[in-house]
Amino acid sequence: APSSLPPYFIKGSIIQLADGELKRVEDLRTEDFIQSAEISSELKIDSSTVERIEGSQTSANFAVVQFSVGEHRSQVSVEVLLEYPFFVFGQGWSSCCPDRTTQLLELPCSKLSVGDVCISLTLKNLK
């Protein structure tokens, strides 16, 4: 089955950080996201802990990942393709099925597990 993942996850894709620096997607590090969010006027990084990973009811190609998001520990579930990569703090790209991710995108990838802390975005508080 063809992947419908966005093109920027394909190995070699050029990503622009908030300070203008260009990096390949496979070379991104935790610090790149943190520093970009610090520069951003609107976005801030949240820590989203994986609480549960289940197969989707609707399609075998999808998984439902439940996160505990931010300091308020809001419960958020997202349905994603098994090969969809999340960025885990201090570890890098991780997906429910890293073999598929590597096969389809050539993106080096680890196995996403319960307890992993992923980088997510939220709006900066306007106060």
Binding site: I14, I15, S36, H72, F87, S120, L121
Partner: peptide, 19 residues
């Protein structure tokens, strides 16, 4: 060659939660 912004790569979670 297309260039993608860094914030496309990580999910936006916790919609409209504040305070």
């Amino acid at each position: 060659v297309p260039v993608f912004p860094w914030h496309s790569l990580v999910p936006f979670l916790e919609p409209s939660q504040s305070g």
